[in-house]
Amino acid sequence: MRGVYLYERLLQIQTMKANDKGTTMADFSQLITQHIPRLRRYAKALFSDPALAEDLVQDCLERAWSKQHLWNGSGDIRAWLFSIMHNLHANEARKFNRRPALIPMEAQNDQPITGNQESTLALNELEAALHNLPEKQREVLLLVGLEQMSYEEAADVLNVPTGTVMSRLSRARENLRSTLYGAHKQSNIRRIK
């Protein structure tokens, strides 16, 4: 079993196949299906309420399905799906936005802090701090830090300039850093505006 890399490769092969012959229904369906786990991970990280997260993923998939003709068949389908999700979420901000952050403590407490041996980061604190971030900062942080998109890809998904991605990312991380690591001295490096 080759783990993540087999999976990534499979996606590549399927994308290539789709590009070769034009996308058939079956290809399209498969391409989408394989991204569902990632869409769910992102949505669940974005919202503390799991039901809202599932709703968003479902809306996103339905939209993708109905807009199949808008996908040109050669682009990066992951970016396309994430941008659909982003637009849905932005348009329905009122529905998704105004819920208090619910942190399922019992789900988090059993996850020990491991990671780097000397890491002082507590996961439950990270999750709480994440949900206290302004949503625009949270989106960028998750696309980059969790989904591992490049800054350009994240900019495409959010339909903003790369500079905006950088400044939101910077603010998100500095926010988390001061919440999670306490007061710290700012290094005197040239700042992102």
């Binding site: 786990p37 479902q58 491991t114 994440l130 690591y181």
Partner: peptide, 30 residues
């Protein structure tokens, strides 16, 4: 280092979702 720890922390918090079975309502279309 803090940025890296935050990235690792995000994976620790949410990567388990990738392992969950896809809810059937999401699979209907496919």
């Amino acid at each position: 280092r803090a940025y890296q720890e935050i990235n690792t922390g995000l994976h620790q918090l949410f990567d388990h979702v990738l392992e969950e079975p896809i809810p059937s309502r999401l699979k209907q279309k496919s």
